[in-house]
Design a protein around this nucleic acid. Structure first.
Lengths: 118, 118
DNA sequence: AACTTATACTAATATTCATTAATTAGAATA
DNA sequence: TATTCTAATTAATGAATATTAGTATAAGTT
């Protein structure tokens, strides 16, 4: 298999792993937690999503090797495998279409988020 | 709707648009064509995929505003909306897991591609 | 046992993708 | 203008696959 196809396939898989609002938020929350990590319970509270659902999304990110787990007592803490992921992801904001007229809300939201997620 | 959710949703959609091997390759090919653009016919030849299939993938990228079209005679030329997309995408190579032992092929492929796609 | 997280399973829903066929758009020629 | 050829988009199909959330249960820890 040509290198280009191998790599494109892998990249595509990574993108798909990031292809859900919830998982994007998990990545950002992980990056901005105090110690760069959060346990599942905290994520459930932050995202306001049921626990099994969070676990499933974490499982997707885990399979894509984007996050890693660490057990501490009865809690499992998640963190980014590569700290650069969150900021790379934010650089992707450039490619959102904030020009079109009906994208005013998005435009404002992007500004907000740039500040919050830095 | 909170800004974080708005942005995460949009980002996720963009990521999903990139979530197919074929579309990744289209983006890279567009970026590396002589004039930064290619017509559909050229893409068909390069990717060795049927023409309607290419058109569909292009349509996905178009809806995500990642590419734009320009008609010249009977040909339609595509180019990236934002020239930075291809290199940002390549920076994502960092997040592919090339450490695990069975990822030797991938590791080599990534090196190759870094050279070719620069 | 109590607490936290992961997994199994379900069911609904959705999507995705490639293929074939039909359609639109432009160019060339009669 | 009508016809024809080429290029590309769109529509329609259909199969496969996936996704998601929910409920229930299991597993690991204290």
């Amino acid at each position: 298999m040509p290198a280009r196809v191998v790599v494109a396939t892998e990249l595509a898989e990574t993108f798909r792993a990031l292809g859900h609002e919830c998982r994007i938020r998990i990545v950002e929350e992980l990056a901005h937690g105090d110690r760069g990590e959060l346990d599942v319970h905290s994520l459930v509270e932050i995202l306001k999503v049921q626990q099994p659902t969070v676990s499933q999304h974490l499982s997707v990110l885990r399979h894509a090797k984007l996050v890693k787990q660490r057990r501490e007592g009865r809690s499992v803490f998640y963190s980014l495998t590569n700290r650069g992921l969150a900021s790379w992801l934010l650089q992707g904001l450039r490619f959102l279409d904030t020009r079109s007229q009906d994208a005013e809300e998005l435009s404002r939201a992007v500004e907000d988020v740039r500040r919050v997620w830095r």
